[in-house]
């Protein structure tokens, strides 16, 4: 709106005394508008370039690959002949992220509810800041902490889970360890907590007062008010938030790379040592990778890129849908 009236205002001042100034203004306008537009297009170009260059550099390695790229569990791109596939990586990425999501979402929503409805008003923004601090800690530090502090403590927890829930296949196995996909899931859960809770909190704070008061005036307790007014209103926001968290967990590299110990092959016993993810595999193998090795890693990165792209787009769509419904 304002921009349009701006044009009119500008065009509508033909009687400027100094003609030169007008033309300078117009040339300046054109250059500036082109620069702004160009920058925007550059952003699109970067996204396109990421896809193009990853594909381009992945193709030679994929052509020399002797194994099925999608179903093979091997990762030996430097061998002769090279054999590599992403099955194990996809499995590890999916499992660790889903575990993280399952652990983080309830806690994150609890935190958001705490800040929005339970904590004293004066503390609310400060507490929000404390949770945001979790997001400010870099992943390398989580990795360091995970490796040196959390991992030694995970053995007991894993054994406990194994003995009590061993009948659930994913918690089964004979050797619950400490550098497992489960441990990676715990670290990832901590890392994605802040994003899920801060988006949920934002959605909760937008719940119209009228809906909250409608429930309270009917004689609802605080929890009943949340169930009647807040959660239905915030549902798609919470779903979108956890999907964004999922995307973040799938792309996380360093913390997972430090925590996991690589054992070849898919292992459904998530408490046992082993497993790898797309991102961790790239970080760990890049140093020793030759030409084909790099190509193979780029190919796996391309798959990760596509998966996170899909998850993020879906999450955005879900969050955007909320705006229509109010």
């Amino acid at each position: 709106m304002t921009s349009q009236s701006g044009i009119e205002a500008h065009v509508g001042t033909p009687a400027r005394p100094i003609g030169g100034a007008v033309s300078t203004g117009r040339a300046g306008d054109r250059i500036f508008a082109a620069a702004a537009r160009g920058s925007g297009i550059l952003v699109l170009a970067i996204m396109a370039a990421i896809a193009v260059f990853l594909i381009w550099k992945a193709i030679p390695a994929l052509q020399k690959n002797e194994a099925n790229f999608l179903t093979s569990e091997d990762w030996n791109p430097n061998a002769v002949p090279p054999r590599f596939g992403i099955a194990q990586l996809a499995f590890g990425t999916l499992m660790s992220s889903l575990l993280a999501l399952l652990m983080a979402t309830p806690v994150a929503i609890g935190i958001a509810l705490f800040i929005a409805f339970y904590s004293p008003r004066r503390l609310a923004s400060g507490l929000g800041y404390v949770v945001d601090l979790l997001a400010a800690v870099p992943s390398i530090v989580y990795g360091l902490w995970g490796l040196l502090v959390l991992v030694p403590h995970m053995e007991g927890a894993s054994k406990l889970l194994n003995t009590t829930f061993g009948w659930i296949p994913v918690f089964g196995g004979d050797n619950p360890g400490k550098s497992s996909i489960f441990t990676a899931g715990v670290v990832l859960a901590i890392m994605i907590l802040p994003i899920i809770s801060s988006i949920s909190r934002e959605v909760f704070l937008q719940v119209p007062r009228a809906h909250v008061e409608a429930a309270l005036a009917l004689g609802a307790t605080r929890w009943e008010m949340i169930r009647m007014s807040v959660l239905p209103y915030g549902r798609s926001g919470m779903v979108g938030a956890s999907m964004l968290g999922l995307g973040r967990a799938m792309g996380e590299t360093i913390a997972v790379a430090l925590v996991l110990t690589y054992v070849p092959g898919i292992n459904w016993h998530l408490l046992e040592n082993g497993g790898s993810t797309f991102a961790a595999n790239i970080a760990k193998n890049f140093g020793e990778a030759g030409e084909i090795g790099r190509g193979a890693l780029i190919a796996s990165g391309l798959v990760l890129f596509v998966i996170t792209l899909v998850v993020n787009m879906a999450a955005r769509a879900v969050v955007a849908r909320r705006k229509e419904f109010v």
């Binding site: 799938m250 792309g251 996380e252 990165g301 990760l304 890129f305 998850v311």
Partner: peptide, 12 residues
């Protein structure tokens, strides 16, 4: 795409 870009894994 700016939104989508925020979700690009850093390793990519």
């Amino acid at each position: 795409f700016v939104d989508v870009m925020t979700g690009i894994p850093s390793i990519v």
